[in-house]
């Protein structure tokens, strides 16, 4: 028997989960369990109660109207609402995700293995806040909104305000992350996730996600980007890439070189040459995102 004893509490609703968490500060949430079970088995985590969110109604995946008058990320004003319990495998394979938030689908296929993606969830990944995790960086790159419910009701926060250093978030102890709202891709949208891991599908040393949107003339009008593996949480890179790539119509060698330089400078301080690795990955992701955006424009 590897984990220390705990009580399993399947919650039938988010409210029920919140009330269990409120009553017991050593209770923890169980989403997909693909990071938590190893921690339990190693006894690095010893919760009194595991509140299972499986049946709490957090499996929604649908398009909804956006909440911002002028979403920064997109020429489309809608959002993809993904419930916290949506499996990573579904993010990878569901055509709705590929069509509306292609960066999410592209990154999801790098998370763990098919066997862990069948269980692992979007919300679990964001709440666990592993600094090398892909999905928190995707949420930051796209300026997504995180929805959380606690004892005082529901609130929304920017994905960039969720991370709080290594394996830590700004969620309150009794709050449940319920959904993530991703801006939907507009017509000139293209995205790519690139990462480097010494072994296929192992944790990456670093990864970078880039999404771009081209205007009707094919010039870059918006870019969002973020890295994982650099420091304690997702590193936003949108400003660096916008400064080098705004208005560009082609991912020229000069542009890619400038982008790599800007990102390397932003990641400065990451050990083992990871800053330069991050720059290379960003250049590669930018080039792919550009090509996919152009293909999408031709197709539409």
């Amino acid at each position: 028997m590897k984990p220390a004893p705990f009580a399993w509490h399947p919650a039938g609703s988010v409210e029920e989960a919140v009330s269990v968490l409120s009553a017991d500060e050593d209770a923890k949430l169980l989403a997909g369990g693909q990071s938590l079970l190893p921690l339990l088995s190693l006894r690095l985590a010893r919760p009194t109660t595991l509140v299972d969110l499986e049946d709490a109604g957090l499996g929604v995946l649908e398009i909804a109207d956006g909440d911002r008058a002028q979403p920064a990320a997109s020429g489309d004003s809608r959002v993809l609402v993904a419930g916290a319990m949506v499996r990573q495998r579904r993010l990878e394979l569901d055509p709705l995700v590929a069509a509306t938030v292609p960066l999410l689908a592209d990154a999801a296929r790098h998370v763990g293995f098919p066997a862990t993606r069948n269980r692992g969830t979007l919300g679990g990944s964001l709440a666990h806040a592993d600094p090398v995790a892909e999905l928190p960086a995707v949420a930051v790159a796209l300026d997504a909104t995180v929805v959380a419910t606690g004892p005082r009701g529901e609130r929304r926060l920017a994905a960039s305000a969720l991370a709080d250093g290594f394996f830590a978030t700004t969620l309150e102890p009794a709050e449940v992350l319920t959904a993530v709202r991703f801006p939907a891709a507009g017509p000139g949208h293209g995205a790519a996730w690139c990462e480097w891991s010494p072994r296929l599908h192992d944790f990456p040393d670093a990864g970078v996600g880039v999404a771009v949107e081209l205007d009707g003339t094919g010039a870059l009008r918006w870019v969002g980007a973020a890295a994982c593996g650099i420091g304690g949480g997702p590193l936003p890179l949108g400003d660096e890439l916008a400064a080098t790539a705004a208005g560009a119509t082609e991912a020229t060698p000069g542009l890619l070189r400038a982008a790599a330089g800007a990102v390397t400078a932003a990641a400065r301080g990451a050990g083992d040459g990871r800053d330069e690795l991050c720059g290379l990955l960003a250049a590669r992701a930018l080039a792919q995102a550009f090509r996919r955006a152009q293909d999408r424009q031709v197709a539409s």
Binding site: P38, S41, N118
Partner: peptide, 24 residues
Amino acid sequence: CEQGACGACSVLLDGEIVRSCLLL
């Protein structure tokens, strides 16, 4: 490994591949 790293414990759950050491 009993911590999700090796795949020796793989089974099908409702027809999908999962790791039985990562499931209660």
